[in-house]
Each structure stands twice: as C-alpha cells, then as structure tokens.
C-alpha cells in the first residue's frame, strides 16, 4: 500500500512537471505572427504565381498586375519593403504553411479545406471561369456538357481545377462512354501550349486571363 502511494505521488509529480513543457511545445508550434514581427523584419513577403494575367505576370522582366499593384500599395502603407516570390501555384500554400511568406496573392479561391487550414482576407475580386477552346479543332464545344469524354486542361490548384474536380465529384461527366480526363499543368504556359497543339480539347481558366490569351495569340 505504501509503495503504491509512493508511485502515485511520483506519477503526479512527473505529470505536473512535464505538462508545462508539452504546453510550451504546442505554443511554439502555433506562435502568432504579429504585425510587430513583420515590421521588425522590414519586408512584406508576397507569394504568387506570375502567370496569371491581369493579376500577376511578367512584363519586361518585372512582375506586375492587379494583385501586385495592391501589394505595392499595402507595403507602402505599412512602411515595408515588398518582396515578391514567384513559384508554382501548388507550392504557394505549402510555403505559406512553412512561414516562407506573409501573404499569398495569386487569385486564390476559398475551399472548405483551405478555410480550415489558412486564414484569409475579405474577397477583393470576383472571378468567373470560362472554357477556352482551339476553334480550329473543336468548334462544337459551347458549354460544360460538351466536355464529356474530352481532355480538359487546368492549372493545378487554381479555381478552375477546384471547379472541374467538383464537377467530376458531382457526377457531371458520369454518363460518358469515353473517359473525361483532367490534365493538370503547373502553370498557364504549358496549358496554353497544349491547347494550341491540340493535346487538350479545352482549357478552363479565369475569364480575364482567357481574354488576355486571346489578345496575344490567334488560332
């Protein structure tokens, strides 16, 4: 009985000593990124994928666009130097998780999963998704149903990717005798090339970006 009491006391002592360490560990993991921290770093780090006209894209070797104009304005207001990191779209949220940037500005749409894993701003832009087709090959594609059994291109992780994945999940293409394939590209350029070459039948993307593409190339 005496031994049991001693063991019980030792266990309580061990737990009361170790719990604070466990809590400290948890706090470090979820340490708040304060405005003061960012100010002391002296720069605002924006993560983006600069192949998304008119929001972010290269012009004369410089990243410009609507999102970049907003980023410049924010940095100026906060008295910070702006640093823009260009990367593949699907790496943006990974780097954000690993604290390699302060804001992701890349025409990002909220999904249930993203809402659970990240914090976000109020909406700053409205977007619509459109189907872009190579008219020389597929003048018959005029609506979503026409994509059944076709090969559809999207940029991985973008609103278009989320949209088409949702459509497939909901069974929009379930009646097809031939499989509908979604080809995911790391950014806009290879998807655009695939459409030009006829490797994909359609490319789903942001409406404004689609308009920009048609300005630059003729098919």
């Amino acid at each position: 009985m005496r031994i049991r009491n001693i063991l019980k006391r030792l266990a309580i002592c061990f737990l009361s000593c170790s719990i604070p360490f466990v809590l400290v560990g948890c706090q470090q993991k979820s340490q708040e990124i304060s405005f003061r921290d960012i100010k002391s770093e002296g720069e605002l780090i924006v993560l983006t994928n600069a192949y998304f006209e008119p929001y972010e894209y290269y012009k004369n070797n410089e990243i410009v666009g609507v999102d970049i104009s907003i980023a410049k304005l924010i940095a100026e207001r906060l008295g910070l130097k702006l640093k823009i990191k260009d990367m593949d779209f699907d790496n943006i949220l990974i780097d954000l998780t690993n604290n390699k940037g302060h804001i992701a500005m890349a025409g990002i749409t909220l999904t249930e999963e993203r809402e659970k894993a990240f914090a976000h701003s109020i909406p700053y832009a409205e977007s619509s998704q459109r189907i872009l087709i190579n008219a020389n090959i597929h003048s018959d594609i005029k609506k979503l149903d026409d994509l059944v059994g076709k090969k559809i291109g999207v940029v991985i992780g973008t609103t278009s990717d989320v949209f088409i994945s949702q459509q497939i999940k909901e069974g929009s293409f379930a009646d097809s005798e031939t499989e509908t394939i979604v080809a995911q590209y790391k950014d806009l350029e290879p998807a655009k090339e695939a459409l030009e070459n006829g490797d994909i039948d359609a490319f789903i993307l942001d409406s404004l970006t689609a308009q920009r593409i048609t300005k630059h190339i003729q098919i």
Binding site: E32, I33, A104, L110, H120, A125, S127, S128
Partner: peptide
Amino acid sequence: EEYVFVYNKNMS
C-alpha cells in the same frame, strides 16, 4: 467565384 488573399493560420 471570389478571390481572397491567404495567410498562414497563425497570422495575427
């Protein structure tokens, strides 16, 4: 859809 800016979950 609507576009938003995204932050680390721990952003203040």
